[in-house]
Design a protein around this nucleic acid. Structure first.
Ligand SMILES: [Mn+2]
Ligand SMILES: [Mn+2]
Length: 304
DNA sequence: GACTGGA
DNA sequence: TCCAGTCAACGCCCT
DNA sequence: AGGGCG
């Protein structure tokens, strides 16, 4: 018999788990209970990437084939021990969830939050991002163009002596993430991302594009530089995606780009823990590598 | 998913 | 007590 | 102001 509800203790908190047998991924039979177990177990890996940031919840209370919604404002019924941060928006303010512990991860998963989205800045310096993201979005399933575009970015970032870390999105593309020292505003970081992307597009304009309109992109990889704007959302490393198989965004080595078997969505909540045993932590040095864009910008202005 | 108001 | 209904984002680009 | 997009 399917257990209806249960009280679990996570650290200091008691959390009511409701309907753990509810299927959220119908093609795979993956339940809310499995989602909760995943986030509890991955906590040591994901918490560094979500902690101290305003979160936006992408929730699917009736599964991934039913209606989803994004949630920024903390619900009135969320327990008092859930941390929050109030940030500015155009018409006023919004109070977001902040997730700094396993208990909050478990609570959010029980809310059928499949993907907790982050922003690129942290609560103590909301206007200055601590990372820049190059978001590579293929239009179809042409992952080969994503690979070559990622390689081109890696070469350019190496030339500019900027650190760059690679992850799958769990969906169809890749993210290249550059950790930053928080010296610049969102607008400034986004302008820089646009300059880099313009160079990458110019190297292969038939394969890469900055076109906003899908109808104008053709089969080209869209380089989504607007991820670097204020209050823009990004799926963090180790987040689950609301797609068949419950795929996970995972950090990978640059060398993986050359391997034929690489797919953006092949690691799932059912395979990740076995998979992790065969890899180290490709992002081990991520937080030690935070860079400034000042010198890189100078190099861009005056090429060799 | 959780809450609310009316059978 | 049991539904049925209701609510849960937003910033940027382009026209 | 409103549609497309992520
Ligand atoms: Mn993407
Ligand atoms: Mn995108």
């Amino acid at each position: 018999m399917a257990a209806e509800a249960a009280l679990v203790r996570v650290g200091r908190q008691q959390i009511e788990i409701t309907r753990p047998e509810k299927v959220l991924f119908p093609e795979d039979g993956i339940t809310k209970g499995e989602l909760i177990e995943y986030y509890a177990r991955i906590a040591p890996r994901i918490l560094p990437h979500v902690c101290n940031r305003p979160l936006t919840l992408e929730r699917y209370p009736n599964g991934i084939d039913s209606k989803r919604f994004f949630q920024k404002e903390v619900s009135s019924y969320f327990p008092e021990w859930i941390r929050r941060v109030t940030v500015k928006k155009v018409g006023g303010t919004v109070t977001h969830v902040v997730c700094n512990d396993t208990a909050t991860l478990v609570y959010l998963a029980n809310q059928a939050c499949i993907t907790p989205h982050i922003v690129l800045s942290k609560v103590d310096k909301l206007d200055q991002p601590d990372q820049m993201v190059l978001d590579l979005d293929p239009q179809g399933e042409d992952f080969e163009l994503v690979r070559s575009t990622a390689r081109a970015f890696k070469q350019l970032l190496d030339e500019l002596e900027l650190p760059a870390f690679l992850k799958t999105t769990g969906s169809r593309g890749l993210h290249i993430v550059v950790p930053l020292q928080r010296l610049e505003t969102y607008d400034s970081v986004r302008d820089f991302a646009r300059k880099l992307a313009a160079i990458i597009v110019s190297q292969a304009p038939k394969e890469r594009t900055l076109e906003q309109l899908k109808a104008h992109r053709g089969t080209r990889v869209f380089i989504d530089t607007n991820r670097n704007g204020y209050a823009q959302l990004v799926a963090p490393a180790y987040a689950v995606r609301a797609r068949k198989g419950a795929p996970v965004s995972v950090p990978i080595e640059w060398a993986e780009l050359g391997k034929k078997g690489l797919r953006p969505n092949s690691v799932t909540i059912r395979s990740i823990f076995d998979w992790l045993e065969g890899v180290g932590d490709p992002w081990k040095d991520f937080w030690k590598s935070r860079a400034s864009l000042v010198k890189a910008r100078r190099k861009l202005m005056s090429p060799p």
